[in-house]
Design a protein around this nucleic acid. Structure first.
Lengths: 329, 329
DNA sequence: ATGAAAGCGCTAACAT
DNA sequence: ATGTTAGCGCTTTCAT
């Protein structure tokens, strides 16, 4: 690979002037600049990051630890958002798929230390609490938050997501929604249950008794008995639900099948709504699934911006979602 | 961050001896080594990659360009396989989600050039032909191959996948499978059609007329009219199919719904099989979908091994899949 | 507006 | 078994 020294030789100028051109220092004669830029373009020169890092003592590297993301496709938007911002702001994002507590995590930490990463984003597959001790490098938590708030965190505003979705449901004239919530040990669960109940109350409805806990999977595993035990009893008598709100799109998929077994056709006899906006499921279900999208892309962007800007706030940011309408309600 | 010089000072030894310990050079006195290692552990020292790269003129960096892969969850296994090998072999994999032809691709190329990447793996979402000119750095193509075979390529053995799956189908006693194949402009299509036909012939069956082309999506988009026009005419009369083989799991999902509309229950009245093993769909469908898994993880591993080892072979490697059995057949 | 000199932290090459 | 010297390719600092 060519060096700046070589370019300087060719341009009959000094090393430093070449460096100035490359670093967009305005104090360079326009003509000199043009000459140097032409040479750079011609030979396709790229300055060595290694040398830059070493001399300037700035790595421009931001680490991204994706914990379990490999098993979950929706969380890829977290990565996309972060990567887009890193690129826009001239940073190098180094991505590692890890599993917390395993060698993969230790390895990622070493690598990032070796590259002198300036900050690390730690992303979880689903909204959860973690216990991440304070280390040398600043951390930003994504889709999770620290037990003791030792790190800035970005999470979805699950209360508000459920609140907004529930308002929409009642505004559309549904009267008897049931909510098949996620396991109670999942952070999002009680936040959403409260959002659901509060929004219903605000609309003058009582949904006590309409919230059911369905057993769902963690990352990757199959939901078991999620809905099979809960749904059938609800569809007898004269107080049957007119909408089933599911804790996540995969559960909704299950619910489509269960409702089919019960002789109900989604979109005609019964409405279904959900959380996540997980492709390709939401589009492939027939009819398409209306769902409250988790703001993963925006969360990823926000995390990277905070990682780059640093700051000592240790705040917890909650981002709102967007309702994606399809034919299921 | 501490430097080797500082460690040498503390250990009352020379810089070079510290370097030897870190690089596992056996020619160091055991006692000296122990003393130095203790200090390293105590202060949590990590050698600077930047300095190493610069001095040794080896980056140990392998680039991974994931073209559209981020939008498809199954292809994450390509990434996992490559990353695992990189880690096992002490390389640093730098991952970029790109879209070919856009600025994201150009940016990734610059970054990798700046880091002096030793090789680049280019991964596509689905098995396809690409036209990737020869550049300075060696490339390994993953899930795609070059028009002019200018690069080593790793692809799934789609012919064999279909052949093996079809054998299984006939061995289980199915007599009248129909194959809803992917679009004919998809590379896998004609390979699979041939594998299907050849295996059927080998089992003494004639499947001419049983192969249908269904319009399917590219990365991310929804399949349209995939199966809606094709299936109903097949399910009249006395020569009805006993198994529907789908080009991919997402199509199979569609087929489940279509068959439901036609009053057929999968696993009872009709069998379904497919290609991909795309979670969570395959597990969430009821009954679970039997499918021929694409060997993405192994392909990722192979690509990284070839990227590291270099070599001038320009070979095309075809990897076999594994049949994953669930209740749908 | 341009340049010279120094040195970032490490390892290769060559002593001892 | 250990040490010395030099230099990788850049940017910082300080001149001019």
């Amino acid at each position: 690979m060519t060096t700046q020294r070589e370019i300087a030789r060719r341009a009959k100028t000094s090393l430093k002037t070449v460096s100035r051109v490359i670093n967009r220092d305005p104090l360079v004669n326009a003509e000199t600049r043009a000459r140097i830029e032409a040479i750079i373009a011609e030979i396709g020169y790229e300055p060595s990051q290694a040398a830059r890092m070493m001399r300037s003592q700035r790595s421009n590297v931001i680490g991204f630890l994706a914990d379990g993301v490999a098993t979950s496709s929706s969380s890829i938007d977290l990565i996309r958002g972060a990567q887009d911002v890193a690129w826009e702001r001239g940073k190098q994002m180094m991505l590692f798929n890890i599993e917390r507590g395993t060698a993969s995590a230790a390895n990622a930490d070493s690598q990032l230390a070796a590259f002198r990463a300036e900050a690390i984003i730690y992303a979880a597959v689903f909204h959860q609490e973690v216990d991440l001790p304070d280390t040398g490098v600043p951390h930003v938590l994504l889709n999770c938050f620290d037990v003791k708030q030792r790190h800035t965190a970005i999470v979805p505003d699950d209360y508000q997501l459920a609140y907004d979705l529930t308002l929409t449901i009642f505004e559309r004239g549904y009267k008897r929604p049931v909510f098949l919530n996620l396991n109670s040990d999942i952070v999002a669960s009680h936040l959403r249950a409260k959002g659901f109940a509060d929004a219903a109350a605000a609309m003058g409805h009582d949904v006590s008794g309409a919230i059911h806990t369905a057993v769902v999977s963690r990352a990757g595993t199959t939901p078991r008995l999620a809905t099979h035990d809960i749904l059938p009893p609800l569809f007898v008598g004269d107080q049957q639900p007119d909408l089933v709100l599911c804790g996540q799109d995969t559960m909704a998929m299950n619910v489509y099948f269960e409702l089919g077994e019960l002789g109900r056709k989604v979109g005609r006899d019964i409405a279904v709504a959900s959380f996540d906006n997980l492709e390709p499921i939401v589009s492939l279900l027939q009819p398409g699934l209306s769902t409250m999208e988790l703001p993963y892309y925006e969360m990823g962007r926000t995390a990277m911006n905070l990682a780059i800007d640093g700051g000592e706030d240790r705040q917890v940011l909650r981002l709102k979602g967007k309702f994606i309408e399809r034919a299921s309600m």
